[in-house]
């Protein structure tokens, strides 16, 4: 009985950015990051250290930030996954958060950016007006090796302000 339910190969369905994907006959050892990148060809999620230290591979799983290198793809069944590809609206326009990153030069090589964006998305969803200290604390698990953190903090602050500006104008209108 145990033999049968043991898996050398696994087939499963993943829900990524509101779209269902079939993953067919892959080894269960594939990390969620590997499945996203190599099987689903969603290469926006970057893989840096592969042991949970750098944060580049951070995605949202059921709304919370998770290291996609510290979770197996097979474990992500029946969960809602959001990656950096899901940030743009269907017409292809950048989200306000991404606009703010561009505006404030919050990326240079761009390697850490997907993880930074997903971490910031979670922060702003749970704290619409974070202080600079709270932004820095939220980003503490994401390493950047070229731009420096100042502009990333600036961008997230700008996105938070832009968001409240939009809300304000709606309330007034």
């Amino acid at each position: 009985m145990l033999e049968k339910s043991m898996t050398y190969r696994a087939s499963y369905t993943l829900l990524v950015n509101d779209q269902y994907y079939s993953v067919v006959e892959v080894e269960p050892r594939l990390l969620l990051a590997d499945v996203l990148r190599d099987v689903l060809h969603l290469t926006g999620t970057h893989l840096g250290c592969e042991h949970g230290a750098c944060g580049a591979c951070t995605v949202l799983v059921d709304g919370r930030p998770v290291r996609s290198c510290l979770m197996l793809g097979v474990q992500a069944q029946n969960k809602e996954i959001q990656t950096v590809e899901g940030l743009v609206d269907p017409g292809g326009a950048l989200s306000p958060l991404q606009e703010a990153f561009a505006e404030d030069h919050a990326l240079q090589c761009g390697f850490c950016t997907p993880g930074m964006l997903m971490t910031a998305k979670f922060l702003l969803e749970n704290n619409a007006h974070p202080s600079r200290l709270e932004i820095r604390e939220a980003l503490s698990g994401n390493l950047c090796r070229c731009t420096g953190y100042q502009n990333i903090v600036n961008a997230i602050e700008r996105a938070a302000n832009a968001h409240s500006a939009i809300k304000g104008s709606v309330a007034e209108g």
Binding site: L2, M6, E27, R29, D34, E50
Partner: peptide, 21 residues
């Protein structure tokens, strides 16, 4: 690096998990 190949077992009850282990 990537994990080595392993067999993967996902028990749905604690009894199953203990039996498998």
């Amino acid at each position: 690096m990537k994990p080595c190949a392993f067999q993967f077992y996902t028990p749905q009850t604690l009894e199953d998990a203990l039996e498998a282990l």
